[in-house]
């Protein structure tokens, strides 16, 4: 379970998120919605340990261990995975190279034969070209291809908490359906949890949420279920806030 308690996040000396509280039990899907520039992506990056964001108060706990001060690689080793809105490209480094080092740094010993077999099977299961395996990470890829590429990494690294920062941006309807459906299957298979950052409810048709929050003024200003996402889709964030009042 992820527990966030009274978290205050700053960047360049300016508070972006104040007093954030959140609990995501294993196997659940939670959603944070909110207008542009309100700090939703900041929350994901802070959970992952981005050093550009400073936690000036509060704590982050994952599976009963405080991770507030852990570097990103240690958080990843504990099962946290961030799928960014626009995943970074790394010229000259292939997915296979990166995943092989990521496994070695987790202490996983696997023959190159077994590793390649697993990668090929993951490509088959995801219906993606096996060329992704030896493709430089996210280089010269469309938005949709990058996200499929990240999904391939999820299949290999097997995280238990997936942070989805606007998965729906840059994806066509069919790709969104196929990726989100696979993520929900993965969640059920592994009892992992998912935190979704989104502006729209479309993605929630395939990843049904247990809880929906609206972020405003650096805090969770509203909490509900799918009906809250539907209200935002229908009336916009201002409309949802006025219902809350």
């Amino acid at each position: 379970m992820l527990k966030i308690k009274d978290l205050k996040i700053e960047a360049s000396g300016k508070a972006i998120v104040e007093s954030l509280n959140l609990k995501i039990p294993a196997g659940e899907i939670h959603v944070i919605m909110g207008p542009n520039g309100i700090g939703k992506s900041t929350i994901c990056r802070t959970i992952m340990g981005d050093p550009n964001f400073k936690v000036s108060a509060g704590t982050l706990e994952y599976n009963n261990e405080e991770i507030t001060k852990l570097p990103p690689n240690e958080r990843a080793k504990r099962g946290i995975f961030l799928l960014e809105q626009n995943p970074t490209a790394i010229p000259g480094v292939t997915n296979a190279e990166m995943l092989r080092v990521a496994e070695a740094d987790r202490g996983i010993k696997e023959s190159i034969f077994e590793f390649n077999k697993r990668l090929s099977k993951a490509c088959e299961d995801l219906h993606i070209d096996s060329g992704y395996i030896h493709h430089n990470i996210n280089e010269s890829m469309s938005g949709g291809e990058k996200k499929k590429n990240e999904l391939l990494q999820i299949e290999i690294l097997r995280p238990s908490l997936i942070l989805l920062d606007e998965l729906d941006s840059g994806l066509d309807v069919d790709s969104l359906k196929s990726l989100a459906t696979r993520l929900d299957e993965y969640r059920k298979e592994t009892k992992s949890s998912i935190l979704i950052i989104t502006h729209h409810k479309n993605i929630l048709d395939y990843l049904p949420p247990d809880k929906v929050y609206i972020l405003n003024d650096g805090k969770m200003s509203m909490e509900g279920g799918m009906e809250l996402a539907e209200a935002v889709e229908k009336n916009g964030f201002k409309g949802a806030f006025s219902v809350g009042e």
Binding site: N73, A76, F81, T88, A102, D105
Partner: peptide, 14 residues
């Protein structure tokens, strides 16, 4: 450093 963050967030030591 964005590239380093990306790779470390996959569990790779700095």
């Amino acid at each position: 450093e964005n590239e380093i963050f990306y790779l470390t967030s996959k569990g790779i030591d700095r």
